[in-house]
Amino acid sequence: MKTLINLFLVFARIGGFTFGGGYAMLPMMQKELVEKKKWVSNDDLLDYFAIGQCTPGVIAVNTATFVGYKTKGLLGALSATLGVITPSIIIIGCIAAFISNFQDLEIVQHAFGGIRAAVVALILSAVLKVSKKSIIDIFTVIVFLAVTLLSVFTDLSPVIFVIAAAVCGIIIKLRKEKTSLKEKEGDR
């Protein structure tokens, strides 16, 4: 029960302080889930993000369900997911009910100018942390560069990149296996 409440609260905190959606959650998730609670590893987070991209739905919700399920099964998945959406419901509900031109308020716009600057810095430092585990050899460097450039300069769906990278990963590793087997046979 305690873990369930914890899951809800941690994800509510993540949902309540992520601006810019999806990937902007990475720094918060790293801090809360990897460093503080140690529920998952940086590797896990990258996997969840990738799978969250190719499965339907909101990435943040998909990731919350993954982490909750891994930590505490079905109930964990529900607690984490409800946690991540609760702040949205409260905040948006209040704005929709009481403030008709929230986004045009000068103070909101200025605050957001600052928040955007923070989000860039936070994602950058989160990215540096995960890079050590995901970019390990020449193949991963090529995949990383290709995906980055293609998603910046084309309108192709991320689903294509993720599936292509997974298939390439399997092919490259299997070929490596074959050549190392051959080398071993050659030694004999």
Binding site: T140, F144, V147, T148, A164, A166, V167, G169
Partner: peptide, 14 residues
């Protein structure tokens, strides 16, 4: 092996 490729792609997307 799939995750080996997938993580690099995920990193690129981020």
């Amino acid at each position: 092996y799939a995750f080996y490729g997938l993580r690099a792609a995920s990193f690129g997307l981020i």
